[in-house]
């Protein structure tokens, strides 16, 4: 039921973004036409009914109440994205690189957590996910500026920064 409700809200927000400005200047100004609102609610109900089986395993009650954390995650993510891009710009201009592929085990169990971590570190300083092991939780990361590390913890910290902690907080 909760999955159904969340998918409904998500699809409705997407639909409302797409029909923004459809009004005729009468009831709601130029923002929305009432017919679009009715069609949006009906279509969102249909979409939620179809995709409930797909998302049923990924979303549960525990995750629902962590939803506000996603809003807190966005500024952190954007800050690291900016930092990463300035680093890449410097590397493109100077050409100083020291690349390599490293193997880490961030200790994430769920698929959602791995997805969040992999997509986050692809867009953040100097790292790119190459492969996920299907049998264990290992991740293969291409690291553009490899630093010398001794223990696995140091390596995880060097590759993921704060994102391993955030992925665990958001998805596990």
């Amino acid at each position: 039921m909760l999955t159904f409700f969340m998918t409904f809200i998500g699809v409705l927000i997407l639909y409302l973004l797409m029909v923004l400005g459809s009004g005729n200047g009468e009831t709601m100004g130029y923002l929305f036409h009432w017919q679009e609102l009715v069609a949006g609610v009906i279509l969102s109900l249909i979409a939620a009914a179809i995709t409930r089986a797909m998302f049923g395993k990924a979303v549960n009650n525990k995750l629902f109440f962590r939803f506000p954390l996603f809003l807190a995650y966005i500024p952190v993510w954007f800050l690291y994205l900016t930092k990463a891009n300035i680093e890449v710009a410097i590397m493109v201009i100077t050409g100083n690189i020291r690349p390599g592929i490293v193997k880490i085990n961030p200790g994430l169990k769920t698929n959602l957590g791995k997805t969040i971590l992999a997509n986050s570190i692809t867009l953040t300083p100097g790292t790119l996910t190459v492969d996920l092991s299907e049998n264990s939780d290992d991740m293969y990361i291409h690291w553009i500026n490899v630093k010398e590390t001794k223990t696995m913890d140091e390596k995880i910290k060097g590759v993921c920064g704060p994102f391993a902690k955030w992925a665990r907080r958001l998805a596990e």
Binding site: G100, T122, V130
Partner: peptide, 30 residues
């Protein structure tokens, strides 16, 4: 965008493209 990049990197590594100038390569063939 990040998902597509991940797919390309994985396909490149599995089809046997080695990283150039690499100081370390811990990838195992699976």
């Amino acid at each position: 965008n990040p998902t597509g990049a991940h797919a390309i990197a994985r396909a490149a590594r599995r089809s046997g493209v080695k990283p150039e100038q690499a100081v370390v390569d811990e990838f195992e063939e699976v």
